[in-house]
Protein backbone atom coordinates (compact mmCIF):
# COMPACT_ATOMS: atom_id res chain seq x y z
CA UNK A 1 0.00 0.00 0.00
CA UNK A 2 1.28 3.44 -0.86
CA UNK A 3 2.34 5.75 1.93
CA UNK A 4 -0.75 7.68 2.99
CA UNK A 5 -0.80 11.33 2.09
CA UNK A 6 -0.36 13.99 4.72
CA UNK A 7 -3.53 14.77 6.70
CA UNK A 8 -5.85 16.86 4.59
CA UNK A 9 -8.11 19.66 5.74
CA UNK A 10 -9.73 22.48 3.88
CA UNK A 11 -8.44 25.97 4.46
CA UNK A 12 -11.77 27.25 5.75
CA UNK A 13 -11.64 24.67 8.53
CA UNK A 14 -8.39 26.10 9.84
CA UNK A 15 -9.91 27.11 13.16
CA UNK A 16 -11.56 23.79 13.87
CA UNK A 17 -8.51 21.91 12.66
CA UNK A 18 -6.28 23.86 15.05
CA UNK A 19 -8.57 23.03 17.97
CA UNK A 20 -8.79 19.32 17.18
CA UNK A 21 -5.10 19.12 16.31
CA UNK A 22 -4.13 20.35 19.77
CA UNK A 23 -5.86 17.49 21.62
CA UNK A 24 -3.24 15.40 23.43
CA UNK A 25 -3.05 11.65 22.91
CA UNK A 26 -4.33 9.83 26.01
CA UNK A 27 -1.47 7.34 26.10
CA UNK A 28 1.33 9.61 24.87
CA UNK A 29 0.21 12.97 26.26
CA UNK A 30 3.37 14.72 25.10
CA UNK A 31 2.02 14.32 21.56
CA UNK A 32 -1.07 15.84 20.03
CA UNK A 33 -3.39 13.78 17.87
CA UNK A 34 -2.01 15.73 14.90
CA UNK A 35 1.59 14.92 15.86
CA UNK A 36 0.61 11.27 16.06
CA UNK A 37 -1.12 11.32 12.69
CA UNK A 38 -4.40 10.09 14.17
CA UNK A 39 -6.33 13.20 13.15
CA UNK A 40 -7.04 12.49 9.50
CA UNK A 41 -9.31 15.36 8.49
CA UNK A 42 -11.47 18.12 9.89
CA UNK A 43 -14.30 19.56 7.85
CA UNK A 44 -16.42 22.55 8.70
CA UNK A 45 -19.68 22.98 6.90
CA UNK A 46 -22.19 25.69 7.86
CA UNK A 47 -21.25 25.52 11.51
CA UNK A 48 -21.08 21.74 11.70
CA UNK A 49 -17.65 20.32 12.32
CA UNK A 50 -16.81 16.75 11.38
CA UNK A 51 -13.51 15.31 12.55
CA UNK A 52 -12.15 12.00 11.26
CA UNK A 53 -9.79 9.93 13.35
CA UNK A 54 -7.74 6.96 12.17
CA UNK A 55 -7.14 4.55 15.08
CA UNK A 56 -3.60 3.30 15.54
CA UNK A 57 -4.14 -0.40 16.30
CA UNK A 58 -7.37 -2.41 15.93
CA UNK A 59 -7.50 -2.97 19.67
CA UNK A 60 -6.38 0.48 20.75
CA UNK A 61 -8.43 1.15 23.90
CA UNK A 62 -7.83 4.89 23.67
CA UNK A 63 -10.00 5.51 20.62
CA UNK A 64 -13.16 6.31 22.61
CA UNK A 65 -11.11 8.63 24.79
CA UNK A 66 -9.64 10.42 21.78
CA UNK A 67 -13.05 10.85 20.21
CA UNK A 68 -14.47 12.20 23.46
CA UNK A 69 -11.63 14.68 23.84
CA UNK A 70 -11.94 15.98 20.28
CA UNK A 71 -15.68 16.34 20.74
CA UNK A 72 -15.31 18.17 24.06
CA UNK A 73 -12.59 20.54 22.85
CA UNK A 74 -14.47 21.54 19.72
CA UNK A 75 -17.64 22.22 21.69
CA UNK A 76 -15.69 24.20 24.27
CA UNK A 77 -14.19 26.24 21.41
CA UNK A 78 -17.70 27.28 20.41
CA UNK A 79 -18.65 24.82 17.72
CA UNK A 80 -22.22 23.80 18.55
CA UNK A 81 -22.50 20.83 16.23
CA UNK A 82 -19.68 18.33 16.24
CA UNK A 83 -19.40 14.87 14.73
CA UNK A 84 -16.49 12.58 15.30
CA UNK A 85 -16.00 9.75 12.83
CA UNK A 86 -13.52 6.96 12.37
CA UNK A 87 -11.69 6.51 9.11
CA UNK A 88 -10.15 3.08 8.70
CA UNK A 89 -8.74 3.46 5.22
CA UNK A 90 -5.87 4.05 4.73
CA UNK A 91 -4.73 2.38 7.95
CA UNK A 92 -2.63 4.32 10.42
CA UNK A 93 1.11 4.00 10.08
CA UNK A 94 4.00 5.22 12.19
CA UNK A 95 5.08 7.09 9.05
CA UNK A 96 2.22 9.49 9.87
CA UNK A 97 3.97 10.65 13.04
CA UNK A 98 5.24 14.15 12.30
CA UNK A 99 8.80 15.41 12.66
CA UNK A 100 7.65 17.39 15.68
CA UNK A 101 6.07 14.24 17.06
CA UNK A 102 9.29 12.29 16.70
CA UNK A 103 11.24 15.03 18.46
CA UNK A 104 8.74 15.19 21.33
CA UNK A 105 8.87 11.43 21.77
CA UNK A 106 12.65 11.45 22.00
CA UNK A 107 12.54 14.33 24.50
CA UNK A 108 10.14 12.27 26.62
CA UNK A 109 12.53 9.33 26.68
CA UNK A 110 10.69 7.26 24.08
CA UNK A 111 12.65 6.18 21.02
CA UNK A 112 10.70 7.26 17.93
CA UNK A 113 10.01 4.90 15.04
CA UNK A 114 12.22 5.17 12.00
CA UNK A 115 10.35 6.83 9.16
CA UNK A 116 9.93 4.83 5.99
CA UNK A 117 10.93 1.54 7.57
CA UNK A 118 7.46 0.07 7.89
CA UNK A 119 7.48 -3.61 7.15
CA UNK A 120 11.20 -4.04 7.66
CA UNK A 121 10.68 -6.78 10.21
CA UNK A 122 11.00 -10.48 9.56
CA UNK A 123 7.90 -10.50 7.43
CA UNK A 124 7.77 -8.16 4.50
CA UNK A 125 5.51 -8.58 1.50
CA UNK A 126 5.17 -12.27 2.11
CA UNK A 127 8.91 -12.88 2.25
CA UNK A 128 10.07 -14.35 5.50
CA UNK A 129 13.45 -13.32 6.83
CA UNK A 130 14.51 -15.67 9.56
CA UNK A 131 17.44 -13.74 10.95
CA UNK A 132 17.09 -11.25 13.80
CA UNK A 133 15.76 -7.83 12.85
CA UNK A 134 18.38 -5.09 13.04
CA UNK A 135 17.41 -1.55 13.81
CA UNK A 136 19.90 1.12 14.79
CA UNK A 137 18.13 2.59 17.77
CA UNK A 138 19.54 5.52 19.71
CA UNK A 139 19.07 5.47 23.45
CA UNK A 140 16.81 8.43 24.20
CA UNK A 141 18.73 9.06 27.44
CA UNK A 142 22.39 9.03 26.39
CA UNK A 143 22.24 8.75 22.59
CA UNK A 144 24.25 5.53 22.44
CA UNK A 145 23.46 3.10 19.64
CA UNK A 146 24.56 0.17 21.79
CA UNK A 147 20.96 -0.80 22.51
CA UNK A 148 19.00 -4.03 22.44
CA UNK A 149 15.40 -5.11 22.25
CA UNK A 150 14.11 -6.82 25.38
CA UNK A 151 10.62 -7.48 24.07
CA UNK A 152 8.82 -6.64 20.85
CA UNK A 153 5.70 -5.99 22.91
CA UNK A 154 5.59 -3.35 25.62
CA UNK A 155 3.31 -1.34 27.85
CA UNK A 156 0.96 -0.39 25.00
CA UNK A 157 0.21 -1.93 21.62
CA UNK A 158 2.44 0.55 19.82
CA UNK A 159 5.58 0.15 21.96
CA UNK A 160 8.45 -2.28 22.28
CA UNK A 161 10.70 -2.51 25.33
CA UNK A 162 14.39 -1.77 24.83
CA UNK A 163 17.51 -1.37 26.96
CA UNK A 164 20.65 0.70 26.57
CA UNK A 165 23.84 -1.22 27.18
CA UNK A 166 25.84 1.99 27.70
CA UNK A 167 23.82 3.78 30.36
CA UNK A 168 21.85 0.66 31.41
CA UNK A 169 18.50 2.45 31.20
CA UNK A 170 15.49 0.61 29.86
CA UNK A 171 13.29 2.60 27.49
CA UNK A 172 10.17 2.34 25.36
CA UNK A 173 10.34 2.48 21.60
CA UNK A 174 7.49 3.08 19.17
CA UNK A 175 7.69 0.20 16.73
CA UNK A 176 7.14 0.68 13.03
CA UNK A 177 3.81 -0.42 11.66
Amino acid sequence: MATPAAPAHSARAGGAWEVAAAVPDPELPMLTLADLGVLAEVEEDEGTVTAWLTPTYSGCPAVAEMAADVDARLRAAGYPSVHVRLRLDPPWSTDLISETGRRKLAEAGIAPPQPGSVGSGAVRQGVLRLGPTRHVVHCPQCGSTDTEELSRFGSTACKALWRCRSCREPFDRIKEI
Binding site: M1, S58, L88, P91, W92, G119, G121, R124, K175
Partner: peptide, 9 residues
Protein backbone atom coordinates in the same frame (compact mmCIF):
# COMPACT_ATOMS: atom_id res chain seq x y z
CA UNK B 1 -5.58 -3.91 5.66
CA UNK B 2 -5.16 -2.86 9.30
CA UNK B 3 -4.99 -6.45 10.51
CA UNK B 4 -2.36 -7.60 8.05
CA UNK B 5 0.18 -5.28 9.62
CA UNK B 6 -0.68 -6.54 13.08
CA UNK B 7 -0.59 -10.18 12.02
CA UNK B 8 2.88 -9.60 10.57
CA UNK B 9 4.06 -8.92 14.13
Amino acid sequence: ARGVKELAY
